[in-house]
Design a binder for these strands. Structure first.
Lengths: 138, 138
DNA sequence: CTTGACCCTGTAGTATGGTACAGGGATTAT
DNA sequence: ATAATCCCTGTACCATACTACAGGGTCAAG
């Protein structure tokens, strides 16, 4: 009697209807029971689960990782430490991405530092010549 | 007489043959002349251009941005300042990504700090309960 | 002169995370 | 009762940046 249609769930979770069906196809969300007309009948917990997915995504977890997290939660012998390990892997991953981005940034900052940024011709721009060390155009 | 086949260019630039053809389709690389058999005949400058693309990619430029950079370089009235502006936009973009990632990381670090990481049951893991605030499973 | 390495086009598939119909049936509000 | 919403499936599409064939022609070495 408290079953929700997909539209209600979508609104309450702040996610699109199509996206929910996509998550179901992906295996991220279990298939809910259907009524006589074939409409999905979601228990209220579905909203909770979708919000979980949404938050995890905001923390940078991929759908695949979220799937693993959910699977872990359902395993009887999974421990808190398993989850923590997962989160720590995520942190390491994020740190690596930050390091990569910082390297890119430093290289670019160095290039712009060398560039006067004035009205000089493009052919003399140190940014381009740095990218194209031996280069001229056809 | 110094024309290169696509395979030679690929090897010298450190890029796959298929990737070069893909760049050509994308409009990133101009179509080279062909010989009687329809083989692409690249001038040696093509290697330079591909290395340019490769380096720009390593600096985090997307193919679309690289296209813009190349177009800028070919415009008569483009200035060094135009290039610098492009690079600075890139820097801002990278900084934004770093800020986003740092936020994610901080949230995760805070969660793992709260988690004992011991053999406790998953249902009591603060990481999961934080992600799923009101939640229990079906 | 044949074999293997190279080249060609065109199409399709990969991964990621969705979004957008088309073409139909069901439900709800007026 | 009928129109406006919903819901269904299935498929195709968006961007990004490739990668992998299939099916065929060409070229160079032994």
């Amino acid at each position: 009697m408290k079953a929700l249609t997909i539209g209600k769930v979508a609104k309450q979770a702040g996610i699109g209807v199509e996206t929910i069906r996509f998550y179901e196809r992906r295996g991220l969300l279990e298939e809910p029971p259907r009524n006589d007309s074939g409409y999905r009948q979601y228990p209220p917990e579905a909203v909770v689960k979708l919000r979980f997915i949404k938050k995890a995504k905001q923390l940078g977890f991929s759908l695949k990782e979220i799937e693993e997290l959910i699977a872990l939660r359902h395993k009887q012998d999974a421990t808190c430490g398993d989850i923590k390990a997962q989160a720590e892997e995520r942190i390491n991953n994020i740190e690596e991405r930050i390091r990569d981005l910082s390297k890119m940034k430093e290289a670019l900052v160095e290039l712009t530092r060398q560039c006067s940024g004035n009205k000089g011709p493009v052919t003399e721009c140190p940014i381009l010549t740095a990218l194209e060390p031996t280069g001229e155009d056809p």
